[in-house]
């Protein structure tokens, strides 16, 4: 997992603009809580093998929640709208968006990836590849490779799929991977804040967006 700090920074950058006229300290606090919630499945990993990156790191959740949220907020007698008004509806949609993009999609690219369609399909997927236009090959993308098995002649699709929930353990500070060699020392738990240049850049960009927004007025008054 890119650290919760990186997830929170990207979520903040998105929330600054998308909360619109409902942007304030409380609204952004709710969005930041929502974006780190999926890490709760790390705790579940202590009792359910492979729960981390499975139970809450799945695209099945936003796929189900989005239509439900649309239905609930557009019907007569909507509980969310009745209780919290347009502000609650806006925060709910921004929360769903940052959950999907700033957390689950970002983890999809990292290590063994996420259990993309769990519980419908129990299979980890890692998003890896590149995309370019070439003068000799035209448009090329390697995120999803469609090839042919040389022995059986059947077509094979490689979208970065790995093992199932029971087979896959994604290392995390609560349950680090065992050391490669038996080490006499104590287990080292490492809590990354930013790793690689781009993560630090995302972190600083999120902080910049929040600070810059504070300097701005809400209206374009001369």
């Amino acid at each position: 997992m890119p650290s919760s700090v990186v997830h929170a920074a990207l979520a903040a950058a998105l929330a600054v603009g998308l909360l619109g006229r409902f942007y304030d300290r409380r609204a952004i606090a709710v969005v930041l809580v929502v974006v780190v919630i999926p890490e709760a499945d790390t705790a579940l990993g202590l009792v359910m093998a492979g729960a981390h990156r499975t139970v809450l790191h799945t695209m099945a959740l936003p796929a189900v929640v989005a239509p439900l949220l649309y239905w609930e907020t557009t019907r007569d007698g909507s509980v969310l709208r009745g209780r919290w008004g347009a502000r609650g509806v806006r925060i709910a949609w921004v929360g769903l968006l940052v959950h999907t993009f700033a957390h689950v999609a970002l983890d999809w690219t990292h290590l063994e990836g996420i259990n993309l369609l769990w519980p419908a399909v129990d299979r980890f997927f890692a998003l890896e590849g590149e995309m370019y236009l070439s003068t000799s090959e035209g448009f090329v993308q390697t995120f999803v490779d469609v090839g042919r098995d040389p022995e059986t002649g059947r077509s094979v699709i490689d979208a970065g799929q790995g093992g199932t929930r029971a087979e896959t353990h994604v290392s995390n500070p609560a349950q680090p991977d065992p050391e490669p060699e038996p080490d006499p020392g104590p287990v080292d738990r490492r809590f990354p804040i930013a790793v690689r240049g781009w993560q630090l850049h995302v972190l600083l960009t999120g902080a910049f967006a929040v600070l810059a927004r504070r300097l701005q007025s809400d209206r374009l008054d001369p």
């Binding site: 999809w108 690219t109 998003l127 890896e128 590149e130 995309m131 995120f143």
Partner: peptide, 14 residues
């Protein structure tokens, strides 16, 4: 060959 790169990692795609 000339390449115009669009994205080169999963994170960039996201």
């Amino acid at each position: 060959e000339r390449r115009f790169r669009i994205v080169e990692t999963g994170e960039q795609a996201v």
